[in-house]
Design a protein around this nucleic acid. Sequence first.
DNA 1: TATAAGCTTGACTTTTTTAGTAAGGTATAT
DNA 2: ATATACCTTACTAAAAAAGTCAAGCTTATA
Lengths: 157, 157
Amino acid sequence: MRLTTKSSYGVRALISLAIMYDRKRPVPIKDISREEEISGVYLEQIFNRLKNQGLVRSIRGPGGGYALVRDPSDISVYEVVMALEGSVNPVRCVSGKGEKKECGRIATCASKEVWREMARRIKETLGDFSLRDLAGRTLELDPGKARKAQLYEKSLS
Amino acid sequence: MRLTTKSSYGVRALISLAIMYDRKRPVPIKDISREEEISGVYLEQIFNRLKNQGLVRSIRGPGGGYALVRDPSDISVYEVVMALEGSVNPVRCVSGKGEKKECGRIATCASKEVWREMARRIKETLGDFSLRDLAGRTLELDPGKARKAQLYEKSLS
DNA sequence: TATAAGCTTGACTTTTTTAGTAAGGTATAT
DNA sequence: ATATACCTTACTAAAAAAGTCAAGCTTATA
């Protein structure tokens, strides 16, 4: 019953972008990598997917980096997880769209109803958290982070 | 975001036991294996865990097999999944009891609150389904199964 | 316009987990 | 006795997860 690290890293990374969102400045991967102690090369893969799914956009060259495409209050953790995991179904046979290997006994399998409901509730739950929520909560839990963001800001001007 | 096949097999297998529960007769693994098209040797592993977690008891020798320890209405899918997966947490760092590798930044990590809530809701959801529910639903979906169970009964008397 | 910052792409490797097998044993009803 | 069925430990193959590597492409800025 585990998400891959892509999701947990991805969410943490996007919280960083959310915190920086108002400053209208892209955040380079290297910064997130250092700050969150996540392999930079691995993060690149993750951002690649996020970009392909339309959650972030990229700006190349010096001063470049990644930024959220939409307002953080408009992006839910569900979207991030979907972008990175592809699905939220607990078993293969309860297929969304692109999933294969239905198990044959689908028509008469009662347990599939459990898994379906489970997916529904997970979607609901993750949909309740926006990146803005989490960014706000992060600053509450770690005021140092707000300070750091400001310093970073200053060092650029 | 996947459960292992242990859980889906396990639930399906226990639905079979639930259907047989009233007849007060243990069900041998071989039968479930044939009926549900699941590797018998693999099922043994699964039942081993279920037994260690106190969900089923075993009766050895000819005419033996496995049976539910408690009434099907008193056993939820959550218990089965916990017995077979060990946990329902979507990430390692949100640890229940026996889980390791807390990630150090726990104190200031906002996303962990998402994962915690997610685990809570999964528990809630799976707790809502009892084996009796699923056994009943199975007989609804597949009336042939009820007939088969009766035949099986007859062949023994 | 050279340079360096930073994204882009695809293939590759390593580690861990999953999904089983294999092979022997033990208990027990008949 | 013997066949049925559980019990236990160890092993293995395949897939997935988690990262690494290498070589590029874009663009701001000095």
